[in-house]
Simulated assay, not measured.
Amino acid sequence: MRIGIVCPYSWDVPGGVQFHIRDLAEHLIALGHEVSVLAPADDGSVLPPYVVSAGRAVPVPYNGSVARLNFGVLSAARTRRWVNEGDFEVLHLHEPAAPSLALLACWAARGPIVATFHTSNPRSRAMMAAYPMLQAALEKISARIAVSEYARRTLVEHLGGDAVVIPNGVDVDFFADAEPKAEWQGGTIGFVGRIDESRKGLQVLMRALPRILRERPGTRLLVAGRGDEQEALAELPEEFRDRVEFLGMVSDEDKARLLRSVDVYVAPNLGGESFGIILVEAMSAGAPVLASDLDAFAQVLDGGSAGQLFRNEDAGDLARAAVELLAHPERREELRGKASRHVRRFDWSTVAADILAVYETVTEGASTVAADERPRALGRLRPRL
């Protein structure tokens, strides 16, 4: 099958949507499909052979974060050319409601379209205001996918219609088979995310850290991600700062090794999450997960049975739960066991099969419509006797 996938966010700045699209594309290619991905990227960026650059992105505040999007006359021309030259059997757009390449591709497309909605935002005034402009494009979509029940709810409440829920995928074995790193083991807490993005919640973890270190003095916090390290430490008393190690941006391989090494993985995110791919990666690696009780996180963690939840933005509750997990290895082992069974539903072998089933449904539907239209068209062309 010839498949075109549109990534709305800059390929140069990794994030959950980009990772999802990358892994989906590579999984489909491994299955023998022809896949091309259109994405924003800076000039000179080293891109995988299946990625086509639509030009440089610009930062735009979006859903409590900063999205790097590409939208304009030049982008529209490049998108139309990619759509026309690709002659795709199915076009898969991600976040078509955002002012991005996905919306441009939706306007340019003529064949079957599948759209995946990632955003969870129960009160998006921007989305509601934009609906009249989006309506014509969204009506062209043949099938809709939401990555979680909360993304589906956002779609239904703001744009109407419905969607099938298919979660983000993870290569479970890649994380499960990673080799732990000795220097990252032994009383360690892990955090992965953009450290200067407030909704990722590192500041809550920093406020919890003094109590954790007083009760478990051998503990260290390992932080992987880009951002201002000094700003992240600003609220942490000087006496505890040497217990925090910043690793900077890490490769996929080192992220997997980090998650395999830590005693507890903490996700203190404040909101705006529709899924929580890092939780699935941590569970795959066997890291006991401690996460804020966001609805999306609770769903990923099977209601709290595959990971422990604490009250969102409550540093005291985070500290109490972290100390309890660090002090009780049997509880951590219990969480590992439940998570290892639960996480298989997110493996790409399952997720990609579900997405392919959607592709096949819309392409078969398009073929049926085309076959039905042909006799009517021939009838109109048949000369009258």
Rank of each mutant, 00 (worst) to 15 (best):
M1K: 01
I3S: 02
P8E: 04
Y9S: 08
W11F: 05
D12M: 05
G15Q: 07
R22C: 03
A30C: 03
A30Y: 13
E34A: 09
S53W: 06
F71H: 14
R78W: 14
P96S: 07
A102K: 08
A109S: 15
I113K: 00
S120W: 11
S120V: 06
R123W: 08
R125Q: 13
A129H: 10
Y131F: 14
R144H: 08
R152F: 07
T154I: 08
A163D: 06
N168H: 10
D171A: 15
D173C: 10
F175C: 05
D177T: 15
G187S: 04
E197L: 09
L202D: 07
M206E: 04
R207G: 11
R207A: 15
L209N: 04
R220L: 14
G227N: 09
E238R: 14
R241P: 10
R243P: 00
V244S: 12
L259Q: 06
R260C: 13
R260N: 10
L270T: 12
E273T: 00
I278F: 02
V280W: 02
P288R: 06
Q299E: 11
L301F: 01
S305A: 11
R320H: 05
R320Y: 00
E324R: 13
A327H: 08
E333K: 11
L335Y: 08
K338D: 12
D347F: 07
I355G: 07
I355Y: 04
T361G: 06
E364Q: 14
S367D: 14
T368I: 09
D372K: 11
E373Q: 12
R380Y: 01
L385E: 11
